Amino acid sequence: MLFRQLFDPVTSTYTYLVADPQTAEAVLIDPVLEQVERDVTLLNQLGLTLSYCMETHVHADHITGAAELRKRTGCRGVVPKQAQIDCADRFISDRDRLQVGAVEIEAIATPGHTDSHMAYLIDGTHLLTGDSLLIRGCGRTDFQGGDAGTLFDAITQRLFTLPDSTVVYPGHDYQGRTVSTIGEEKQWNLRLAGQSRDAFIQLMNGLNLPDPKKIAEAVQANERCGNVASVMA
């Protein structure tokens, strides 16, 4: 498996490139519109064909690069089932599997940050958690159908039951951290380690965070797979 972690410094968003080097089939998870040129250049340099763009959820802090990548590469767009999107090529459900050559991607429903959120387990070892489980933290739960209790259940019952050695790659990090493991997060994630469900709900409901800077434009555009022109029309 070929695996790359890519970073957008403006929104602190991680995009992931996963590919089968034998078949040269590739997938990008959570691409960012402003980084499409970077991503296409890398695909060309590595001799890869982009088969899919996948989203962990409808993002509120950046506009997805899916529409532009579909236009430039002919890839198919994949989004979580129940996401309020009408332009995707495929909706993926909990425990569905997507094959990219010999690489297997399993969807794990992890709602709570938003009402339609997926984590993706790559070949049973690399867990892309999106905005559900972060390194020493977790995603907020105060908009887009988010719910703190639902997020607690998703992380503790779905993600923390994976082997401790499972490598965690989040959708964001604001302190320069790139990778963790399930075992580390079970021990050191202060929002979750040793916390009761009620205490977690109280903590999350009291964060009072400001809205993401791009929320107004990002959600509308991402509900159209990143088609900015349709939002402006």
Score class of each variant (00 low, 15 high):
T181N: 09
R197T: 03
Q187V: 13
L192G: 07
S132M: 05
H172C: 07
P170A: 06
D147V: 01
V179K: 12
P163Y: 03
R177T: 08
P170V: 04
Q175H: 13
Q157G: 08
D173H: 15
F152E: 00
S180R: 11
F143P: 01
G183E: 10
D198G: 03
Q187C: 10
I155C: 03
A193S: 15
G146T: 04
R191L: 15
Y169M: 13
L203D: 08
G183N: 06
L134P: 01
S180C: 08
G149D: 04
L162W: 01
L162Q: 10
Q157W: 05
F160C: 10
T178M: 11
E185T: 13
T161M: 06
I155P: 01
D198M: 07
R136C: 08
G176N: 11
L162E: 01
F200P: 01
G139I: 14
L151H: 06
I135Q: 05
F200R: 04
Q202H: 13
Q195S: 12
G146C: 03
L192F: 09
T166Q: 08
L159K: 07
E185L: 06
A199K: 11
G183W: 02
A148I: 07
T166L: 04
L162K: 02
F200D: 01
L133H: 03
L151V: 13
Q175F: 11
G171Q: 10
E184S: 11
G145M: 05
A148Y: 05
P163M: 05
R191G: 08
Q187P: 03
L203A: 12
R177C: 08
F200W: 01
F200V: 08
Q157R: 12
A154H: 06
S165M: 09
L133V: 12
E184V: 14
H172L: 06
K186M: 12
S196G: 15
V168C: 00
V168R: 02
G139V: 09
D142T: 05
T181M: 09
S165H: 14
E184K: 13
R191P: 01
T141S: 03
N189T: 13
I201V: 15
Q144E: 06
E185M: 09
I182P: 04
T156S: 05
R197S: 02
I201D: 01
L133A: 05
G149K: 06
D198W: 05
R136I: 07
F200Y: 15
I201H: 01
D173S: 15
L190M: 11
V168T: 00
G176D: 09
V167I: 15
H172K: 13
S132T: 14
Y174L: 13
Y169K: 09
Y174D: 12
T161S: 05
S165Q: 14
T161C: 07
R140V: 10
D153W: 02
A199F: 01
T178R: 12
Y169C: 02
I182R: 04
W188F: 14
L133C: 03
S132R: 01
G194H: 12
Q187N: 11
I135C: 02
R177S: 11
L159F: 12
Q187D: 10
F143D: 07
S132H: 02
D164E: 14
